[in-house]
Design a protein around this nucleic acid. Sequence first.
RNA 1: GGAGAGGUGGCAGAGUGGUCGAAUGCGCGCGCUUGGAAAGCGCGUGUAGGCGCAAGCCUACCGGGGGUUCGAAUCCCCCCCUCUCCGCCA
Length: 423
Amino acid sequence: MLDPKLLRESPDLVRAAIAKKHLEVDLDAVLAVDAAWRTQLQEVEALRAAQKAANAATASLPKGSPEFAAKIAEMKAVSTQVKERDAKLKEMEEQLRNAMLTLPNIPHASVPEGRTPQDNVVAATHGDPAQVGAHARPHWEIPGFEKLFDFARGAKVTGAGFPFFIGDGAKLVRSLLHFFLEEDGKAGYVEVSPPIFVNAASATATGALPDKEGQMYETTPDRLFAVPTAELPLTNFFRDEILDESVLPVYRCAYTPCFRREAGSYGKDVRGLNRVHQFDKVELLKWVHPATSYDELDKLRDDAERLLQKLELPYRVLLMCGGDLGFGQAKKYDLEVWGAGQKRWLEVSSCSNYEAFQARRAQIRFRSKETGKPELVHTINGSGLAVPRVLAALLENNLQADGRVKIPAALVPYFGKEYLSFQ
RNA sequence: GGAGAGGUGGCAGAGUGGUCGAAUGCGCGCGCUUGGAAAGCGCGUGUAGGCGCAAGCCUACCGGGGGUUCGAAUCCCCCCCUCUCCGCCA
């Protein structure tokens, strides 16, 4: 959600933001709703002030006296009027809130212009895609793949996109998670093991509701949502709180399974481990002082990149253009690992600065030492990292002539062996 | 899951349906006092929204939502949470 004051004082900034994100929003309609609401608010508050004054006067009159009775009769009329206008005001408040929710966050000045993924800017490339994967093939075509990654039985037991990981497959998942958490811990992120279901209030505060309602698994009868990312429980940790400025920045990481219904996905995207309904991911999240948020975004991106470097996987960093930015994001980098067999880039981390957009909706603030007043924090998050696609890239890039997969040196202490075998 | 008790400001804790944004204490801030500190004394100390150049003014908020009433922290209903006891259980 945007700052209503910004909308009133600088509507052109908001207009430019909408254009840069290539969204269709009727800003004038929002402004009109806002103006109407303020007029109504002033009317209601004036009436209330009168009502309060009259009530105070009544209190000093002797009960049962003619003056008392007269005053009450008089106030009945005011009361009726307040109720009518107040009902109208509530309606308009709801309208205003809905209108405000249609306004996207403002992209940072450094975000490139552009409409489609083709307009994203390659900010960095690490490793040489051409030099790896001599024996590469799509991971799902590696002989013996289904022994370690059993999609067919997963489909039987639960449904498509819920694979079983078996033997070395399961062990590799566990090794990666352990590796990620250890490395993230060294980088200063405090490990958290959060609930993997959140309530509607939490889902709403981070914007998952109502926008992505159909993308989440929902439980009955309690109406809890299986988390699509640890970002949800993690961000909501400080919901409706005012932090001491001295605790900022707060760095946290969390492993959770992530659940996504992925309605509407199709094609190559969904082959093998590229896109599944349940997957494991370590999420990095920071709550920071607004003055430092872009430095913190870059540092978080470095932290995520370092994981890929240690795994010796080729990857690139995309700076997302305006049109490819999420609704609430001010700036975003995607980390894409090279899938040597599929010959595709696979997104494994999305590092974003939401500035105050999430914080306003979730009411996460800190008390400014300077002003003594509460201010909204900036929130930054990114994966560090998502397991299945890293695993897919590992299989494809490190496949040997003998059909085994070489485990990167950094991972060997966790995996316990230098090779993964499909036998 | 059952029975009971309770949710009030940073914390503790009062509050008869009417001048209660809410006593009092603690904490915190500023000042006085002191050689310095403690104690003591005085003043101040919530959040949000609207209006205003500003000083400031107005409105709302006593777990959340709804209701009764001219008027609700106080009465009624629903929900959430916490505590105690019982049951069940990894």
